[in-house]
Amino acid sequence: MSQRLNEIVNVITNIDYAEIVKAFEENENALTVTSRVALTVNEHRIEFDVSIYPQYPLQFHDTETIRFVNKDLLEFDHVNGDGSICVHTFHSPVMERKLQLDFNSLKHWITKYYINKEKDTHNEHIIVSPHVNAGLNPVFLFTEVDYDFHKGQFGRFTYSTLATGILKEKHTVTNLVQDFIIDKITASCKWNTAYKALTRQTGIFGYIENPPVRNRRFAVNNWQELQSLVSQKFLSFLNRTSKDYAGNRNKELEIPLLLGYKISDTEIHWQATQIPVNHFPTYGEKVLGLGTWIGRLRDQGILWAETRNCSYKYFFGRGKLHDTLTGIKITYNRNWSNREHAGDNACQGWLY
């Protein structure tokens, strides 16, 4: 047992609410330490697979280098799709202190989210696994629009390709959503005139209002799981759209579909999917005894795409100035001549 591994075992052994269930193992090449531990909090005993990476107790690219994983906890807040727990902890370069901090943070998570079943009031975006088509990773950017969408609305939208490049080792195509077209109404995203002048392509959208998720935060993976969120009119629209591409020989061609849902009383998020034009997820089913047909969604995987809200308040983030300041009209007075008390490098004008 290495000195590092021995230190890790000793620290965890002395944490009174922690128990080592499976002996720690150390990968000699990567120095990654793995085990299974159990924490007992208020008579609740929960086991986690734990991995401690070589950089520990330091971070690596702003990421914690210890992971606690339990895939049975996906329904609770601050759990990633792979079952890893998002613990908020303090930093320390000292191994003993850092382990104590991390285990204490995990204990806090158990108390707050597992035992007390607290739900965060802030709105988290759904967690998706983006699809890569023919080596290309599509990303769609949108902004707010001056239009109030209503549940069940659908139509077409236009978008423009802004740039292609490499992002996180993926060949990425960045697209700007330009307009939503609902009947005879056009709701435009708030880009500047240079972006609006870009060449446009066409996709489709549907406003479903409720997020397409399981366990509150994880995007559904199969089209059949969306059946209860869409109307027969929308399914007919998808079917008509599929006929526009009938006989298309490009097996890699995909059409984007934006699904809109509320993340607050006043805000909508659009999540992009990609539909292979030769494999639309809709089909018709005959109703026995009535002679009519209804639309159905296939047992087919959903190809999610990355989507970002680039509205003004999100684009600037914490660097955005207060609205009181940005809304003030500022003029420059070239005739300011009261410079007798100014130095040689004084400002040549005055802002008022």
Rank of each mutant, 00 (worst) to 15 (best):
N6E: 13
E19M: 15
K22C: 14
N27E: 05
L31Q: 06
T32G: 09
A38W: 06
V41Q: 15
E47A: 03
D49Y: 06
Y53S: 07
P54N: 03
Y56W: 08
P57Y: 15
F60S: 13
H61F: 14
D77A: 10
G81N: 11
V87A: 00
H88M: 00
H91T: 04
V94T: 10
R97G: 10
Q100M: 02
L101V: 08
H108G: 13
W109I: 00
I110R: 01
E118H: 11
T121Q: 14
N123Q: 12
N123S: 14
H125T: 15
A134G: 09
E144W: 08
H150L: 04
H150P: 06
K151R: 04
Y159K: 05
T161L: 07
T161F: 01
T164F: 08
E169Q: 03
K170L: 01
H171M: 14
L176Y: 13
Q178T: 11
I181H: 09
W191E: 08
Q201I: 02
G206H: 11
P211Q: 07
P212S: 01
L226S: 08
Q227K: 04
S228H: 07
S231D: 03
F234C: 00
F237T: 00
L238W: 01
P256K: 00
P256Q: 01
G260R: 09
I268L: 04
A272I: 07
I275P: 10
N278M: 08
T282F: 08
G289A: 06
W293Y: 09
I294Q: 12
I294C: 15
Y312E: 07
T326A: 11
R334S: 15
R334K: 15
Y352L: 06
